[in-house]
Write a protein that binds this DNA or RNA. Sequence first.
DNA 1: AAAAAAC
Length: 576
Amino acid sequence: MEAFQLLSRGGARFNKQRFKSDVQIFNKAAPPKDVKGKGVLTQLPPELDFFKYAKASSGKRKAEDKEGGVHAEGKHEKVERKRRKIEDESADSDDNHIGTEEEAPTMQKHRVTAKGSDVPKPIASFEDLRERYNVPPRLLSNLSENSYKHPTGIQAHGIPILLEHRDLAAISPTGTGKTLAYLTPIISALGSPISSMKNDGGRGVRAVILAPTRELAHQIHNECLKLAAGRKWRTVLFSKATASTLSDKNVRDKVDIIISTPLRLVVSIQEGNLELNNVQHLVLDEADRMLDPEFLSQVQEVIAACTHPNIQKAVFSATLPAGSEKLAMGVLRNPIRIIVGLKDTPLPLIAQTLTYVADDASKLPSLLTYLSQPYNPPLLIFTSTQPRTTSLAEELIMNGISNVDCLHAGMTKKQRDDAVSRMRRGESWVMVTTEVMARGMDFKGIREVINYDFPTSVQSYVHRIGRTGRAGREGKAVTYFTDEDGPFLKAIANVLLQSGSSVPEWILKLPKPSKMKRRQMGKVKRANTVNAARKIGRNDAIKKRDMIAGSKRRKEKELRETDKNNGVGEGDRSDK
DNA sequence: AAAAAAC
């Protein structure tokens, strides 16, 4: 509660002297650029992380409070009030009060709210895990060897909960170490690799982690391998190939952990090539995505196959809309819910801007202008469809942009893997992609994200821009919007406000989407267009007009090109 | 509101 009050003043009240040493660490720790791939994702000390929070929100928030429009501020306060209430509740139910002065900043920094019965006390360091939960030394040394020195908020709170075998719904912003928060307790709880166990009872895979994309599953597996190093853990990234290897029961009974996308697992279950009756830990990563209608039945099938009576289930995401939360809570038993920061809100260290481009045709010229100036590679660009991804990448190459790459799920597995590798090696400077890259992917160097096409939901927005600003580093996110995006603009604008970025006043004055819809398309929308044109000023308007003309020429060229090739990446060129 | 992703 005090934490809230201090933070709401932008941290200005904090005794800077007290954080001085941390600031120095920060200056040293923040690498100018990737030092050596691995060392980059160093988890910052909690206090230090906190300082960033305070710093990022100080000036901006104050300004916003002054001139930030009645609607936004009102909403903001409502959310904060709700938070405070939850905090009070959890303080009552938790007898482990934060007593000492040293611990207080940690708590404040994390801004954690917990809901549920008997919430375990958070850890202050990974070393605490040894005393409190007998976490194997090997696991702890794997953590520190991979530069995970201090637990993040979600790790400090989530790991004890999972180690006490409680079900958990964890909401924590992008890039705050959720993967480690569930992998560490799973590996600890499994104790020993099944291959080294003497008793015959309880054979078969004991932990399953589900993720929405292959790339994310792959990345989780890599993390898992790091933590599993030094012992004979069998962790399997489930794919067509591994699935067929595991169709041999003797092989699959020696597997400890499976990481997979849902459908792949369902297929194997249905073929009778996989039993999950010994699964004692089930994690849904990107839970809200996994509970989307298209995934839900598959996920339910996996859950149904996990028949072990003592199964522990956990869901993780940076976003969890009410509907998904309800679904998730229905799946969990006596769960604890942890929220780090504010739900559906990006980190303040991502500087976000909304950029008006009149229509689709104006986007490419704007982007080319942007890329003609110095920018921070690698850059991640999101579009709305696979064909648009392909054609934008082609367009950029034709316009002389170097090291452009493209990744969407319509490509072959190999093409996708190669694109990710190039990205990881720093060979891609500009990657054009679809929603497939929006969630969970951790490319350490990404400083900038561009939403070339407007995201189709607040959740999508939060996850897309969360590809930058990871593990305490700063990031930048630019979102293009056209007249057609008008109805959804305000929702995104509110997200910007919540996370300390500023928004042009006229956007905040837009009517609510429902109102716009009620008035039926045309009139309101046109009025906004005029408004927008006025706001960007006459010179800008002229510039835009020229850009449109230029883009039309290019578009014709593009059409000629695709006619020639008549192959990939064609199909969606409509301007409507 | 709507595309993407999963095999």
